[in-house]
Amino acid sequence: MYIGMEYYKINSDCECDFMAGSKFKMYENLVFLTQIGISMVVPILGGLLIGKFIDEKVGTNSIFMLSFIVLGVVVAFMNVYKMVMRDYRKKDK
């Protein structure tokens, strides 16, 4: 208990000690964890809808839909990769 309070005091440079240090970092990472799932889904579904729309306009069978889904998968991977590697890049600098 005592150690905890000491830590709290050291890490609070402002008078507003809402959340301190590593505990706060944990919350931030948890928030990102909840975002990973949906940021994987949205580009793929977006690709599906855009591809389907173009297919209907142009009159092709499903070539645009398939290619846009593949594009969506790549974008989804890139988004998640960026999100996960965010902290590593900060350490490099």
């Binding site: 975002q35 949205v42 580009p43 594009l71 890139m78 960026k82």
Partner: peptide, 20 residues
């Protein structure tokens, strides 16, 4: 070569934020 993918990825941010 990844420019269009980056642009689409940026566009996905508000959609995923809003829809979640």
């Amino acid at each position: 070569a990844l420019t269009p993918l980056n642009v689409i990825g940026e566009l996905a941010t508000p959609i995923s934020l809003g829809f979640r």
